[in-house]
Amino acid sequence: MAELDKEYLSRLENRAERGSPEDQYRTGIAFAIGDGVPIDLVTAHKWLNLAAMNGVSEARESRAEISQDMSPAEIAAAQKLAREWYLTH
């Protein structure tokens, strides 16, 4: 991963952590497709779930898509991460 990619992802995740729905969506997509990071569907689902809760309609569609490639345990883990994030922010 190039240094620029790391910096971009770091800024993106920081904005997502601060509650930006669009950046939550972008972070979810990055982890779903492996854009500058290893593919991590649990983390992707977490961010897409949060973006969907914050009104990003595309996040609902993307979350449903990646859910097809996840086990029930992975989905439960992602939902738990999203709940934990939501309760602390």
Rank of each mutant, 00 (worst) to 15 (best):
A2F: 02
A44Q: 01
R63D: 00
A52V: 05
M1Q: 03
R60C: 01
T27S: 11
Y86M: 13
G55Y: 10
W85A: 06
Y86A: 14
A78E: 04
S62E: 09
M53N: 02
A16R: 01
K6D: 09
I39L: 08
N49R: 13
I75D: 07
I75Q: 15
G55P: 01
N54E: 06
A82N: 06
L4M: 06
E84N: 13
K6R: 14
I33D: 02
D23I: 02
D40S: 08
D35Q: 13
N54D: 05
A16H: 08
R60S: 10
D5T: 12
T88F: 06
R63A: 00
D23R: 04
T88Y: 02
G28E: 12
A32V: 11
L50Q: 12
H89F: 07
N14G: 08
G36H: 08
A78T: 15
H45G: 02
V56E: 13
E74G: 09
G34Q: 06
W85F: 07
Q68E: 10
A78G: 12
R60Q: 11
K46F: 04
I33C: 02
A16W: 06
R63V: 09
F31G: 05
P72D: 06
E22C: 00
I75F: 00
P21S: 07
L41A: 12
A64E: 06
E61K: 15
A76K: 15
A76N: 10
E84H: 07
T43H: 03
T88C: 01
R26L: 13
P38H: 10
G36W: 04
D69S: 11
G55V: 12
E84T: 15
E22W: 03
S10V: 02
F31R: 09
I29W: 12
G34D: 00
L50M: 10
T43N: 11
Q68T: 12
D69I: 10
G36L: 08
S57L: 11
A76M: 09
S57P: 01
I66H: 04
A82F: 11
I75T: 14
G55M: 00
P72Y: 07
K80I: 10
V42N: 01
